[in-house]
Design a protein around this nucleic acid. Structure first.
Lengths: 158, 158
DNA sequence: GAAGTCGGAGATCATTATAGTCTCCGATCG
DNA sequence: CGATCGGAGACTATAATGATCTCCGACTTC
């Protein structure tokens, strides 16, 4: 349950790899192309390409065309959170459908729904969690983070 | 992304309703059957039945057969967490496949996987979150809960 | 003890989301 | 100019989900 999609996994791996090559102290900083990442992690090339394109559109990475082209982080690894990556690839966080349903497909349970409000709090907490962990955290520099207050003191509509 | 299944939603609603009827101060405590819940929330009867059966097997609710039969909470609403409900209905929490993959379907990325360990921490944090909110919290009595330490001080393998 | 009411369990089908593939285009650098 | 790269779209296959249907067995009520 609550599984990330493969695309999201691939995206995180790729970003992590790009960051490592770009800022790592082992090799000199260089640009990385899709093929290299795909081979490194055994990811289907075309699928990874799509993921990277999506991330580029979201402004998390910069693309460079032509021979010797590839991708670079668009900002510091410290400023890229897991939430941003997931949101870019999988769309907005929605633990339950009804948080962003379109017109014409109303929630049949909305009327007497008693779980909408409390679940919204859970969702917010999860979002905080995902938004507090950065690419840099995933690479070893691991600060301590605290998320608080899942349920608030004010009552819940019922 | 990270969406609960409809079954999980239905399960939470049903439990919430059962708890309200069982412990609510409006009506006298009584047993609730599947049909009543299904009509109350516009949930397909058979589907809800399956969900309730699952919850009963997990020991969260007790079933009573015969006319005037139905379901009762097997324990206090304070002792039923969202995590338990989700786990009962959707199976064990697994943000990524590789945390419980079977023999014969190895993860192609396992070898150089750099996100496995950090994501495991995220998963644990989410679990704590879900396991700290109870049915009772969802019904209005809302204590304050704190989840801490997503990333730990020790380094991450890379 | 018979009838009716309930849960238990299985197979089945439709719909959707996901994962993955294929093809063509345009930009860029050598 | 042309090889190498990303950009973008359509397309297919597979799996998960949501939902429905049918039959069985247990128990409670009358």
């Amino acid at each position: 349950m609550l599984k990330f999609s493969k695309k999201a996994d691939y995206g995180l791996m790729a970003l992590q790899y790009i960051a490592a090559v770009q800022f790592g102290d082992v090799t000199r900083a260089r640009i990385v192309n899709t093929k290299e990442i795909a081979e490194e992690y055994n990811i289907p090339l075309e699928l990874l390409a799509k993921v990277l394109q999506t991330l580029a559109k979201s402004g998390l990475i910069e693309s460079h065309n032509g021979p010797k082209g590839g991708y670079l982080l668009a900002k510091s690894a410290r400023d890229i959170t897991i939430a941003q990556v997931l949101e870019s690839i999988e769309g907005p966080l929605g633990i339950t459908d009804c948080y962003h349903e379109k017109e014409g497909e109303p929630c049949m349970q909305r009327e007497h729904c008693t779980i909408r409000t409390p679940l919204l709090k859970v969702q917010d907490s999860i979002y905080q969690l995902l938004n507090s962990m950065t690419l840099q955290d995933m690479m070893g520099g691991t600060p301590l983070i605290t998320v608080q207050s899942i349920t608030t003191a004010q009552g819940v509509e019922r």
